[in-house]
């Protein structure tokens, strides 16, 4: 009985296939006139950009609802990450604007003078984008603020390492122009921890977050190489191992310089605080 039922199903299945084939014979050919996109394939650009389309970007006018009895919601306070593509990064390295023999961070990219950041416009750092990912060949130790999976794969395939890290606005202000900052004669600020909605990103080893476990990161490096199908270069045996594994402390904003120190460019000395309360304040 059981076997018979199975047999019946099988015959019915082949009947359905035959039926479908017969149906297909009489159906019109697939052409431009009768095809359409898969559901969800095309995303509608919701934010208008023209003369009137870009007025408030769907957030309504400022008024009673927005400013008296409700918070002002929308994109006005969202963190921005101006893009820098892998193409741009490679060009900066090959034209000697960035020294790839040393760790690359936001400071070295800003010092090239070819990337601009306005922390006062809620810009929080670099979004490394995947344009030129296939042609990226530079071996770098880079620290950016936002990167996609493909970008991480491109950098690790080339034998480099990448970290995503968060800087608060005061730290960014010090990083914009280090010479100007040191001339002010104020202590190097300590880096704040990320806000609540960014903690998840920066503790994620798949995003190479600076607060995630280094052992899990090395695991994820291997997992990503398997996913994208490349052999992971062994950085332990690399002659630049020291450089590739150099990382900042979560409270540190410049390599080798601790928060709380004052740099005197005129006398070429560094002043370090000795008071216990200051040491406590700046410790990690």
């Amino acid at each position: 009985m059981h076997a018979g039922k199975l047999k019946g199903e099988a015959t019915m299945g082949s009947n359905t296939a035959d039926k479908a084939l017969r149906l297909l014979r009489y159906l019109p050919r697939v052409c431009l006139a009768n095809i359409r996109d898969n559901p969800g394939a095309v995303k509608k650009n919701r934010r208008g950009r023209a003369q009137h389309g870009g007025d408030n970007h769907g957030d309504g006018n400022k008024g009673s609802g927005q400013r008296q009895n409700y918070m002002r919601l929308g994109h006005h306070l969202r963190r921005q990450y101006p893009p820098l593509s892998l193409n741009d990064l490679q060009l900066l390295i090959e034209t000697n604007r960035i020294n790839a023999n040393q760790p690359i961070d936001l400071v070295s990219i800003l010092n090239s003078g070819l990337y601009r950041l306005s922390p006062d416009k809620h810009e929080f750092g670099i979004h490394l984008t995947d344009e030129g990912a296939d042609l990226f060949k530079a071996k770098v130790n880079i620290e950016v603020q936002w990167a996609s999976e493909l970008v991480i794969a491109a950098i690790e395939k080339a034998g480099g390492t990448i970290t995503t890290s968060y800087y608060d606005q005061h730290s960014l202000q010090a990083m914009l122009n280090t010479k100007k900052f040191f001339e002010r004669g104020v202590p190097i600020p300590r880096r704040m921890i990320p806000p609540a909605d960014a903690i998840e990103y920066y503790t994620d080893p798949t995003k190479r977050g600076y607060l995630s476990d280094p052992e899990k990161i090395s695991e994820e490096r291997f997992v990503l190489s398997q996913k994208y199908g490349y052999t992971l270069p062994n950085i332990e045996e690399d002659k630049d191992y020291e450089m590739l594994t150099e990382r900042k402390d979560p409270r540190q904003i410049f390599f080798g310089l601790n928060p709380g120190w004052v740099v005197n460019l005129k006398d070429k000395v560094i002043l370090k605080p000795q008071n216990e309360d200051l040491k406590d304040f700046y410790s990690t």
Partner: peptide, 13 residues
């Protein structure tokens, strides 16, 4: 505060 003039630290500046 302590004033230091170490080249190993100044190279980072």
């Amino acid at each position: 505060y302590e004033v230091t003039k170490s080249p190993s630290e100044w190279k980072y500046v």
